[in-house]
Design a protein around this nucleic acid. Structure first.
Lengths: 352, 352
DNA sequence: GTTAGCACTCAACAGATAAGAGTGCTAACA
DNA sequence: TGTTAGCACTCTTATCTGTTGAGTGCTAAC
């Protein structure tokens, strides 16, 4: 459906205004603030039309108009102007990014904080899911007679370890041998692909010491299965208090409740279209009741060409979409570079 | 200073009431609800005395009285009745504790959640600080030509790993040899005790390959230094919304701001007296402005006899101290058993 | 097709009033 | 002397009122 240029410009003006002020915007305001060369009466007529079409809504008679979800959708898809980051903003980001960051977790946390500082919204980062990436290397290390350390290294370069507790004594030699076989059988597979037949195969190969092998293998299999602790990074959670929409304590409560409930958060972030750089979910387009008045802007980050995780910015539907999109694009690109530098090369160097 | 039995009983009644209702409590209420055998007028006189002594305060003339920090202090130290956990509560905890919990982090998270569910307050858990515990075992594992994995196992049984990135090629043999020497020189020391002279000693020992050794040693030293990511576990953060004290959005904001600011939280939790089982900090007894209206009940948990971390419950000064203390005692004891079982034995089994 | 003008609606605000809870004080009582 | 009943006073809270101002929809004129 085409609205015609004038309606589009008016809608854009309304949404721009509403995003900055958070107050329902009236026809007179638009006539004064934006130089459209139209009187408030004309604008009033157009606004009535736009409301009928479903792009605007009225909280009550004789209030100004506010954009509907559908209005925002049109806005982000077609209307909004690209936001050019100011030099000050870019410098601030650059400066913040200069801190040395070795550990992956901290790196992610750092980015999450920067984004929430720049955008003033809440940031959510979904780290790489181990289950989806292939195992590159497995190693068992003897800690003491009762404890074995299982180290898993994925092709994307991430490391996880689990302590396995055993009742019988094990010796180092045995473990090295087992490590070799585990590597032989399992490396190259994704964690999801490890199943009972595979385990049994290993058991057959190691035929000796059956009574001691099984518990370890079971533990390995168990550990491997729940390796993805759904750890989600949050940044700037308290930013939500800055928005008048959340002056109401009940709203704030729902919002925080949703953030605490990490599982839903994870589904939300995983729901984006992987082929697009930026995904935007507006208001009730998401299925979670608690954040039906929120929008989410998501961006996938990757190592090399492989998408490994998602960064999301979450805030009221009245969000500065343009600015968020720009900041997110800039920082995602930066993060991609960073990750490829740190973890990428090892990917292409060799395969064992 | 001794108040006399009657004043004590009246003060106790007032605080008990205020804790449950959150409303300033008047003399008539006390006379009716508690069977003290006194008229409201008498109680009124006593209340005036208690206010003069600084145990009570009045929000405004003709409101009831509320306890002051000093009043709460007397209450928790001398007045309050021990809270007996109900069978239902104990069963709920037992049930929740039955879930299998291998990983240390999850174990802690689990406990933190249970406590906040039972008490309905916010829970904060400070995990063991690696820096304070001795190194038991160090190992370097080759991931690929550019990446080395450093694994540190402490005497308390915890494992941490760091990826070290190197520019020069390293081979496995070299690493095993280095691992041996590192273990020889560093195990037994706490992480804090590792310093430049120690590192130089190792360098001397490995004399060969100086140009390749230094970057690795530097990285080891660096990694070791910032190994204590101040990760703090939070549970039931949204519980704070249930208290009328925090219906005011500004208060809630301050509270959440404080929780987000992990550093202060850590100092707060570390401030307790290690020799006592339970520490209670009431209102402005803590130095942090943001939570001057909060109280914190803290309990230390240990492995064997060594205190390794702290659990804290944080809520409005009007806190159900008795119940919180009981729950915390119960669960801390349980956690201690659990930890000793999982990590304790390895401690006594042998030393290398 | 656009604009000016007018009547109408609704939320927000400020006073005014009433109700209710609690106090302090005084005088009477055991 | 300690305790109690009664009363005037204070202060908060809720409710109702009228007023103001922003914004709309409609109509008639340009």
């Amino acid at each position: 459906m085409d609205l015609g240029e004038r309606k589009r410009r008016i809608l854009q003006a309304i949404i721009d205004d509403y995003i900055t002020t958070a107050d329902p915007v009236g026809s007179r305001t638009i006539a004064k603030r934006h130089d459209l060369g139209l009187s408030s009466a004309t604008i009033r007529n157009e606004m009535a039309d736009l409301e009928e079409m479903g792009f605007l809504a009225q909280p009550h008679t004789s209030a100004g108009r506010i954009p509907s979800d559908r209005g925002y959708r049109l806005y982000v898809d077609q209307l909004m102007n690209r936001y050019r980051l100011t030099m000050a903003e870019i410098n601030r980001m650059r400066h913040a990014l200069e801190l040395r960051m070795q550990e992956f977790d901290r790196l992610i946390e750092q980015y999450s904080n920067i984004i929430s500082q720049i955008t003033q919204y809440t940031t959510v980062v979904l780290p790489p899911q181990m289950k989806k990436s292939a195992i590159k290397h497995l190693q068992l290390v003897l800690i003491d007679q009762n404890h074995i350390l299982l180290i898993i290294i994925t092709s994307t370069g991430f490391v996880k370890n689990h302590t396995i507790r055993v009742t019988q004594k094990v010796d180092g030699d045995f473990l090295s041998r087992l490590s070799l076989i585990l590597n032989d059988k399992l490396s190259g597979l994704t964690i999801e692909e490890i199943n009972l037949p595979k385990i049994q195969e290993i058991q057959k190969e190691m035929c000796s010491n059956e009574e001691i092998l099984m518990p370890i293998l079971n533990h390995v299999s168990d550990s491997v299965k729940d390796i993805d602790d759904t750890h989600i990074f949050l940044g700037g959670t308290t930013n939500i208090f800055n928005f008048p929409e959340y002056k109401d304590i009940e709203r704030a409560k729902e919002f925080f409740g949703f953030l605490e409930q990490k599982k839903d958060l994870q589904t939300l972030l995983s729901s984006g279209d992987n082929t697009r750089k930026i995904n935007i979910i507006i208001g009730e387009e998401n299925k979670f009741f608690e954040i039906k008045d929120c929008s989410v802007v998501m961006s996938h980050y990757s190592i090399g060409n492989k998408v490994v995780g998602t960064i999301g910015v979450i805030g009221p539907t009245r969000m500065e979409y343009a600015k968020v999109v720009s900041s997110l694009e800039y920082l995602t690109q930066h993060l991609n570079c960073m990750l490829s530098q740190l973890y990428g090369e090892s990917n292409t160097s060799e395969k064992d």
